[in-house]
Simulated assay, not measured.
Amino acid sequence: MKVNSNINVLGGLPDWNLVNVFLERNMSSVRADGGLYSYTAIKTDKSVTRFENAISETLIRFANSEVETLVRTFLEEERLSNDALLLLFWNASFNNELLNYLNDQVYFVSFYSGKITIKQDEVLDCLKDLREREVDLKKWSESTIDRTASKYLTLLKKFNLMQGSVNKEIVHPYLNDKMFVIFVYWLKAIESRSNLLDSDWIKFSFCEPSIFVERLMHKKFSKYYELLYTGDKLKIQTLVPYSTIYNAIK
């Protein structure tokens, strides 16, 4: 597993408008185009550079051109809407192995078991268990592990997947029709398995696999994709180019 501190950095990011800034430019062009203060109230270049690295590595790094087109179009049209943050959560989870691991072992376990809250100690226990097996994590101090557990929950809150301050509660999102189609296109773009029923990413639809398949088969979505479902195999063929799917469903 590739481990970095981006969960800590993004959990502490005070100005998420920098996501859109760095989608279009880097620090060099920011300095040349009116300077740092034209874009953010964050005071030092060092801090902004640290945030730029985390944003570029986790939020706006793209597995392929289809994902890039999907994310760029969405952010250009909606900036940081709730739906855009959900798409960034999917993309960040694909890009950051530690984030995806915590999602798999903590967040989605709690989400699908019907729990109301996730405590920091649960994340902490998961990280300590992982540290026993991951060489890079063995280098982390107790304070770094503690901070990562805390910032992970804060990051979920920034994605609108949890709410509250001290005792954070799980939000149970329901994908509207637009986001359901966007999820299908994102899933098709990042999943290498031919049988989508084997995909570990289906849980990111926030519904059980059987419900996901049932919704896939609604006739109103037939203009966006074709599917082949045999009970134990699922294949999807998208019908609209990634460059125009956002405008086709908005």
Rank of each mutant, 00 (worst) to 15 (best):
N95H: 05
T117N: 06
R131V: 08
S81M: 04
E78C: 01
L88H: 07
I116N: 11
Y107C: 02
R131A: 14
F74H: 08
Y112W: 01
V123S: 02
L124P: 02
D129F: 14
F108K: 00
C126R: 08
F108R: 00
I116W: 03
L130E: 12
S81G: 03
V123I: 08
E122H: 02
A92T: 10
N100D: 12
R79W: 11
V109A: 03
W90M: 11
L99N: 07
E97V: 13
N82C: 12
K115F: 14
V109I: 07
N91V: 15
Y101E: 13
L88F: 09
L98D: 01
V123G: 03
R79Q: 13
F111D: 00
K128F: 06
Q105K: 09
L130D: 02
F74S: 04
D125S: 15
N91E: 11
D104C: 08
L86G: 03
L87S: 09
C126N: 07
L75R: 01
Q105V: 13
S113W: 00
Q120E: 14
N91M: 08
L85Y: 06
L102K: 04
V106K: 00
E77V: 07
F94K: 07
V123A: 08
W90P: 06
F108C: 04
T117F: 11
R131S: 14
L88T: 11
D83N: 11
D125F: 15
G114V: 11
C126Y: 04
F89E: 10
T117S: 10
Y112S: 05
I116G: 07
L130K: 10
V106G: 00
A84F: 03
N82S: 15
F108Y: 01
L80F: 10
L130I: 08
V106S: 00
D121L: 15
D104E: 10
D125G: 12
L80H: 03
A92E: 06
F89A: 15
D83R: 07
N103Q: 10
D129L: 15
N103W: 09
E134W: 00
N103V: 10
S81A: 04
L124Y: 08
K119G: 08
E122M: 08
V109D: 00
N103E: 13
R133H: 12
Y112I: 05
V109Y: 00
A84H: 01
L80W: 05
D83L: 04
F74R: 08
F94W: 06
R131T: 13
Y101K: 12
E134K: 04
N100I: 05
L75G: 02
Q120H: 11
L86N: 05
I118G: 01
L102R: 03
K119F: 09
Q120F: 07
N91F: 11
Y101H: 13
D104A: 09
W90S: 10
T117C: 05
E97R: 13
L88I: 13
N95S: 12
L99P: 11
Y112D: 00
F74L: 13
N95A: 09
E76C: 05
W90D: 04
R133K: 15
N95G: 09
E76L: 11
A84Y: 02
F108N: 01
L98A: 06
E97P: 14
L102Q: 00
L86V: 10
V106T: 02
I118N: 00
D83V: 05
F74Y: 09
N95P: 11
E122V: 06
N91L: 13
D125I: 15
F94S: 05
E77D: 07
